[in-house]
Design a protein around this nucleic acid. Structure first.
Length: 112
DNA sequence: ACCTTGACAGAAT
DNA sequence: AATTCTGCCAAGG
């Protein structure tokens, strides 16, 4: 086969895993990395999701369900912060007054 | 081929 | 408690 391998398999694994996060739930970058047997590669997970901006894949990846370990959106204002916040709100995921999401309530347990 | 950067995380100071 | 530093993987210059 040729012409395949868009990016590293890591990216594809990230996308596949993120697609498994159900609406109304969220996961952290580190959690995704841990699931991929690559703890510490949280940055790479963020890099993979960032690549979606210029290189979207099908089926769509619900990247908005991935936040950082502090329960906050890592995107800078004007670069998707508001979009992610809005998309999550539509799924019923609401932050507190400090813009922090309650991980104890919204975290995806990884179980179907 | 080397160095820097990047939607992070956690330990160390 | 806040800031700094290092680890991790991939892509760009």
């Amino acid at each position: 086969m040729s012409g395949n391998s868009i990016q590293g398999d890591f990216f594809q694994n990230v996308y596949r895993l993120v697609r498994m996060i159900p609406p109304g739930k969220v996961a952290t970058y580190g959690q995704i990395a841990a699931f991929l047997a690559a703890p510490g590669a949280a940055r790479t997970v963020g890099y993979a999701l960032n690549a979606l901006k210029t290189n979207p894949v099908l089926p769509p990846v619900p990247w908005q369900r991935v936040i950082n370990s502090r329960g906050g959106i890592s995107l800078p204002p004007g670069e998707g912060f508001e979009i992610q916040r809005d998309l999550l709100a539509e799924e019923g995921v609401m932050p507190d007054d400090n813009g922090i999401y309650d991980l104890d309530e919204y975290i995806w347990d990884g179980k179907p």
